[in-house]
Design a protein around this nucleic acid. Structure first.
Lengths: 130, 130
DNA sequence: TGCTTCTTACGAAGATCTTCGTACTATCCT
DNA sequence: AGGATAGTACGAAGATCTTCGTAAGAAGCA
């Protein structure tokens, strides 16, 4: 089956799997299952089915050269994160990224280091945007 | 029926309705439908059913004193936005709000005014966190 | 070889989301 | 009063998501 033409946002279960693959790198179903079943009670074939579906959808790529297929995320973590943020901005913040940022920052105590990092990013943006 | 005990994140269709109620204030099904059908082709009873379900779930409050019931969002916009951001941070950013903020900022050109606003917020945070 | 284990493939059930048709009731207008 | 209009309630269909059982093939081992 050819992959789906467009890509809707990954579901919760799909995102959970993507995070494992981003963090640990390409993995078999067995390995992903071992990882996730530490956190949550989930069957092996459930994981298999999900990863097969994700491959059909074009979210994952599969290396079938070995008996145990090896899966990896098609998109880099940052790309998917960017899509998810964009999606949330448009659905919940009327398209205003700034509102989301303000909301995110105000609902959390950041460390001095984190604040400094963000400042630095703002500096760079201001410089470049000029 | 009593409202649901906890509140999972609102679905896409639900969030769309919430945004209308936040922006325009309490409204009847008719009014919400008139608003949303400008953007999207959707039936009146679909809207009605959704808003009834949302009331059961505890997302909306309903004033039944008039023939046309008047609905309003139970939670303020900022509260729901905060929950949505928190949810995305935990599902896609490993719990790091800072990563989400950096991702959001770097994927968008902000105006000088917006950057200044964010700086001001950072100032306030630094002051308060001290 | 023959038994056990691991893996993929597949079907289907149950849950939730979105949609709308239909029925019923209240209100309005002539 | 009586037909037209507008509203609510409800059931159910179709889509998607998540789950798992079962079957069948491949690999390992006694």
């Amino acid at each position: 089956m050819p992959p789906a033409p467009h890509s809707p946002r990954p579901t919760d279960a799909e995102l959970e799997i993507l995070r494992v693959l981003w963090t640990l790198g390409p993995r078999t179903v067995r390995q992903v299952h071992d990882e996730l079943s530490q956190k949550r009670d989930v069957g092996y074939t459930t994981m298999l089915k999900l990863m097969q579906i994700m491959t059909d959808k074009g979210l994952l790529l599969r290396d079938e050269s070995e008996r145990s297929h090896i899966y990896r995320a098609k998109q880099k973590e940052a790309v998917t994160q960017k899509q998810l943020v964009k999606d949330l901005v448009s659905r919940a913040f009327g398209g205003s990224t700034e509102k989301l940022v303000m909301q995110a920052l105000s609902s959390k105590k950041a460390t001095a280091q984190e604040i400094a990092d963000i400042r630095q990013l703002l500096d760079k943006m201001e410089g470049g945007a000029k």
